[in-house]
Design a protein around this nucleic acid. Structure first.
Lengths: 163, 163
DNA sequence: AGAAAAAACTTCAAGCCTGAAATTTTAAGC
DNA sequence: GCTTAAAATTTCAGGCTTGAAGTTTTTTCT
């Protein structure tokens, strides 16, 4: 029955861990944004939407995009709007439901995305170039544990609240 | 002299790793934003600025805040503006330099931040509750390797481009 | 069928964020 | 001392993001 001790050094170390996780993720993200902007005049959100659309050639409804990407509906409206302006996407009527739209990449959009995606993968490989298969697995498993914590084991109190 | 093979499965796995890292970080961040908003009517950027100010009771110049937090000057202008409106911060003239401002937390701001910070640490501990000292260290070291890659060893090609 | 609820979107206000272009003030070079 | 460069900020346009509120269309339930 070891109660949590929020100000223990374990607690502080978890906080530091979170800060490092955030910093790592943010720095890669910033670099990706920079390159998308400088080399392609594009953005990460646009890339994400195009990526979702590229995986589904028949197109996606607005609401499908927002639930896949876990962003708000209103947000998708704006991003798709700009994608359409750029000629990278188009909206089709959904037969039998006049509320909905099916959004698809245009040929130009598909082509542009293919180039972007290839570069993107290269960038990531460059940034994570040090990581071999074992490290990838270890890191991936640890992140998975953060994302989906296993059931709390009430019995085995870790007894690790070293001050 | 093993050249990078961008489309190898190692490359794809690095890409998946990045996606998972991003997802993990984003989901924690989203949860923090939600709680800051719902429980305190505040935001992460405000919290970050207050956190920087709390560590420096004598105050910080605008440019010091932006370089500490790695955000643009213009961005800090707006955040501090709102902090001042809320009575959480105030701006002082810097003697001898009429260009600069020294930003400080008010007493109310310090008090508010102390409460926020305590809650914040508790939230992180809750979200990373599974992680013991060894896991924290392992994860931290791996993230450190992403953040600050060691010198590329030209000699020992990892030969790990398993397709 | 007619009313009410739900679904698919869009619009909007507010805040965050950036890079570029001012502004004001200080420091440097001649 | 004067001119120029540098520094500290602010302003601005453009884009992202959310949650709330509003619109239109479809479904559900009597």
């Amino acid at each position: 029955m070891t109660k949590e001790t929020p100000s223990s050094s374990l607690s502080k170390n978890r906080l530091r861990l979170w800060l490092k996780l955030l910093k790592t993720s943010s720095s890669i993200e910033a670099e990706l944004r920079r390159r998308l902007r400088d080399q392609f005049g594009s953005t990460l959100p646009r890339f994400d939407v195009m990526s979702a659309l590229a995986r589904t050639p028949e197109g996606l409804k607005m609401s499908e995009i927002s639930s896949l990407l876990k962003v708000s509906n209103g947000n998708v409206t704006g991003i798709v709007e700009r994608l359409v302006e750029d000629g990278h996407a188009l909206r089709l009527a959904v037969p039998g439901d006049r509320r909905a739209n099916r959004v698809k990449l245009t040929a130009a959009g598909s082509k542009a995305f293919a180039e972007l995606a290839a570069e993107h993968e290269g960038w990531i490989n460059e940034m994570l170039g040090e990581f071999g298969p074992e490290q990838i697995e270890t890191l991936s498993d640890l992140l998975e544990a953060v994302l989906h914590p296993a059931e709390k084991d009430e019995k085995s109190g870790s007894a690790a609240n070293a001050e």
